[in-house]
Amino acid sequence: MTALARMRLVGFVRTARALPPLIAGLVALTVLYGGGAAQATEAYGVSAVVLFPVLAWQTKLLLDTEPDTQRRLAVVAAGRRAELAGGVIAAGLAGLALVPVALLLPWLVGGVTGPERPGDLPLALGLTVGLWAHLLVLPAAVALGALASRAATSSPLYGLAALVGGVVGVYVLGLKDSVLPWIAPPVLATARASTAGPDGWSVALLTGHALLWSAVALAGYAWLRRRRR
């Protein structure tokens, strides 16, 4: 499984498919932080929201890098479950590589400041919350990207529709007044909680929600993979 994930990551990098989402992410974050300095928790919460579609797109690109026949060869060589897990792990690792970039970039462009007013969270806590927020959107983004990948959809059009529709749905259903907030992963809710300074209960609730949603979505991905011939 690790060998398969490694091979897919190598292929993703060598084909230069890793560059477009990286560039898009950097541009989006730079534009985001260009408006002025903000508290770390606030900045990182929004950064996680902005990175969500980039991470989902990156996952789709990574899983689509391999030719279909090679994916089948991997199924034969490693087994169906290991092949499935190898792709998801590779996508997770690729997404994980973007998190430190997202955490570091605002400091380079003056997008964050330390605590200035009474009540501002300490910097270390702000960084921790930012890390939590980014790590929380990552599995959901990977799951959405996997659902939109060529291996799970029957046509490129369906894949694109799943990606765009999924991202829009996550944003719309995640609005504060949404009637069905639990249907979408808590991307916007995490940003709101991050800005406000999350308490232990909201951290646990949002983490559970995000992980459960991701698990269900990945199960759907596995089902689609099995169903699609």
Binding site: A3, L4, R6, M7, V10, G11, R14, T15, E66, P67, D68, T69, Q70, R72, L73, A74, A77, A78
Partner: peptide
């Protein structure tokens, strides 16, 4: 397979070694 998927960014040695590790 009937058509080997040659559109991959590996050399012959890298590919076979990778497949060996996967196996």
């Amino acid at each position: 397979p009937e058509r080997f998927p040659a559109d991959q960014p590996y050399t012959v040695g890298q590919y076979l070694t990778g497949m060996g590790r996967i196996r």
